[in-house]
Simulated assay, not measured.
Amino acid sequence: MSDMERRTVIKTALAAGAAAAIPSTASASDKPLAGKSILITGASSGFGYLGALHYARLGAKVIASMRGLPRKEADELKAEAAKEKLDIHIIQIDVTSDEQVADGVEEAERIAGGPLDILINNAGVGYAGPIELQDMQATALIFDTNVYGSHRMARAVLPGMRKAKRGLIFNISSQLGRVIVPSAGHYSPTKFALEAMSEAMAYELVPHNVDVCVIQPGGYPTKVWVNRNQLASELKSRLTEDQAAAYPALVNSMGKEDGTRRSADPMDVPRAIAEIAAMPAGTRPLRRAVHPGMKPQEAINKVSAETQLAMLGNSPFGPWVKAVHD
């Protein structure tokens, strides 16, 4: 049976309620990620930092990457790992650097003892302000981080995953990868691009038994707001008087967003990722909306899947599309 046929059989069985008859690769113990090697980008704070600890507590060997080592966040994570005797390794990767991505993935595979099981593309940045006022410096940084960075990382880990005929890539998108609010700069454009890139990869990797999952968080009280305000303030300082006068209310709010009023638990995201990672290959969802409140993207996810199946279900690409969506 081919890998593509296996994925279809497993999904069909699960839909029919026969999950118990399918052997799972996940442990039934309290260490469901035992034996898994996980590389995370952007692990200095937020979902990446919390996730590194969570996955290691569930038995995984975690390679947590971040920019600009040495840094205090790396020391703090190392201390937490030592306190609990967790299998966490910290390496440097700036996802905007071809060289650091190549060297970092090579080091991660050395630590893992072979191809990685899971990549979590978590590194990302945000801006604020009208699209017109996003200068090329801001535009280049956000696309290079949120889109090209994930692409660099995927290209670096996929040769090993394909050779091993297994693997899983998580791309951290957002509700704003499906819906749009004004004055968020190029955040939605980059996340829309990440969504499209992820879905194309999911289809193309079916024959290689490599899964792709897009995580779509809502707003959480993480350091992303601090970083976003800093970048937005720097952009604001570069505006001309005429540019600022064109959008007075929107420009006035740049650099002043307060994410601390958000009360959702950031651990929602690592928990969702761990749950999906423990599922058998070929049964994982393409997308998972994560937030205790509204999930407006779910309606779009549903109609998008239906449209893809209607357009390509009976085409030569049909088996790949059905393996991802059915």
Rank of each mutant, 00 (worst) to 15 (best):
A200R: 15
D98T: 09
M153S: 00
L250S: 15
Y148N: 10
V95C: 07
A102V: 11
Q308M: 11
I215V: 15
K165A: 14
R110S: 09
P266T: 01
R238V: 12
W320P: 07
L116M: 02
E5F: 06
G177F: 05
V251C: 06
I93D: 02
G255N: 04
K11A: 15
G35P: 02
V157M: 08
M1T: 14
A184F: 11
N314Q: 11
R57P: 12
I142L: 09
L176W: 00
P115C: 03
A52D: 09
D3M: 10
A184I: 14
P189V: 12
G167P: 02
L239D: 07
R152H: 12
A19D: 12
V101W: 07
S44A: 14
F317E: 10
A154K: 01
A249D: 15
Y127E: 10
A52L: 08
E109A: 12
A128I: 00
A274Q: 12
G149F: 06
S45G: 05
G177H: 09
T307C: 04
S97L: 08
A112R: 05
L312N: 04
M197A: 10
D94S: 03
I90F: 02
Q100A: 08
D103V: 11
A281S: 13
E257Y: 14
D94Q: 02
M1G: 15
V181D: 05
